[in-house]
C-alpha cells in the first residue's frame, strides 16, 4: 500500500436496464482501486444531492464517510470539484471514465486535469510503485493488454471496466457511514440550454448494401450464400488435417502470436 493521498470521485449511476439509481459501476471500481491503494485513508467525493440514497452503496464498500459538495441537478460539477481538489493535498484523483446519468460524455477527468494542470492517465489498472514524486502505473488497453507508464504526481486517473471489480456493498456499513455535505457556489451547466436528452432511439442495424455495376454481379450477390448459415464441417479427416484447418483459421484471424 502506498502512502498516497487519494481522492475518488463518485457519481450516482443508473442501471442500464431498469434505470434505477445505483452506485456507478466504474466509479465503484475507482473506489475499489482507491481502497486497494490507500485503505482507510481514501477520500471519496461527490458533487450533487446529499439526500440521494444510492450514494450509500459506496459507503457500503467500507467507507466511513463520503463528502458531498452540495449541488442541485444540472449544475456544473467541474468548477466546484476543481476548486476543492486544488485546495486539497490530493496526489491522485480517481474517477470513472463515464457517468451513467446525464450527459455521460466522459469529459470530466480530462477537463479536471486540464484545469488543475495535472497529467491524466486513462484506464488506470494498477499503481505499481511511487518514488520521488513519480508513479509507475499500469494502463489497461483493450483485450486485456497492459502498458507501463511513468507519471509525475499529482495526477488524475480514470478507470474503466478493466480495473478490479468493485467489492460488494454491505447494508450495515452503508447505513452507518456518514454523508457529509458542504455548501459550495453553484454554477449552472449551460449544456441543457441548447441540448436535450431524449429516450435513446434504437439504432438500425446496418444493412449490407450491394453496390454492383452489372446485373450479373447483382445476381451473384443476391444468390450468394447468406453468411452465418452454418460453417464448414470437417468430418472423417485425420487429426492432422483438422488441426491444419484450425491452424489456418487462427493464422488468418491473427490470434497466434
Amino acid at each position: 500500500m502506498t502512502e498516497l493521498n487519494i481522492v475518488a470521485l463518485v457519481s450516482v449511476g443508473a442501471h442500464p436496464l431498469s434505470g434505477r439509481p445505483r452506485r456507478a459501476e466504474q466509479d465503484a471500481r475507482a473506489v475499489e482501486l482507491g481502497l486497494h491503494l490507500a485503505g482507510e485513508r481514501l477520500q471519496v467525493l461527490h458533487a450533487g444531492d446529499p439526500q440521494q440514497e444510492a450514494l450509500r452503496a459506496y459507503l457500503g464498500m467500507g467507507l466511513n464517510q463520503l463528502k458531498i459538495l452540495e449541488q442541485p441537478a444540472h449544475s456544473d460539477a467541474l468548477p466546484v470539484l476543481a476548486d476543492y481538489l486544488a485546495d486539497s493535498s490530493a496526489q491522485l484523483v480517481l474517477t470513472g471514465s463515464q457517468a451513467e446519468t446525464g450527459e455521460g460524455s466522459g469529459m470530466l477527468p480530462f477537463l479536471l486535469a486540464e484545469q488543475l494542470g495535472w497529467p491524466l492517465v486513462v484506464g488506470l489498472a494498477a499503481v505499481e510503485q511511487v518514488s520521488d514524486g513519480v508513479a509507475q502505473v499500469l494502463q489497461a488497453l483493450p483485450r486485456g493488454q497492459r502498458r507501463r507508464l511513468q507519471v509525475r504526481l499529482p495526477f488524475v486517473a480514470s478507470v474503466d471496466n478493466a480495473a478490479p471489480t468493485a467489492r460488494q456493498s454491505a447494508f450495515g456499513p452503508a447505513r452507518r457511514g456518514l454523508l457529509t455535505a458542504e455548501e459550495v457556489e453553484l454554477v449552472a451547466d449551460p449544456l441543457f440550454a441548447s441540448a436535450q436528452l431524449q429516450p435513446a432511439k434504437p439504432r438500425p442495424k446496418r444493412l449490407k448494401v450491394i453496390k454492383a455495376k452489372t446485373g450479373a454481379e447483382r445476381m451473384k450477390a443476391a444468390t450468394a450464400k447468406a453468411s452465418g448459415g452454418g460453417g464448414q464441417v470437417l468430418k472423417d479427416v485425420s487429426p492432422e488435417a483438422g488441426a491444419e484447418a484450425i491452424f489456418k483459421l487462427l493464422l488468418e484471424e491473427g490470434v497466434l502470436r
Partner: peptide, 24 residues
C-alpha cells in the same frame, strides 16, 4: 460524444448509461 448520427447539423449521441440520447 458517442455520436451515432449527424443530420442537418444536429448530432445525436448516446448519453449516460445508454438509455438516453443527447441531441444538440
Amino acid at each position: 460524444t458517442r455520436v451515432w448520427q449527424v443530420a442537418d447539423g444536429v448530432s445525436s449521441g448516446r448519453a449516460g448509461a445508454g438509455r438516453e440520447d443527447l441531441v444538440q
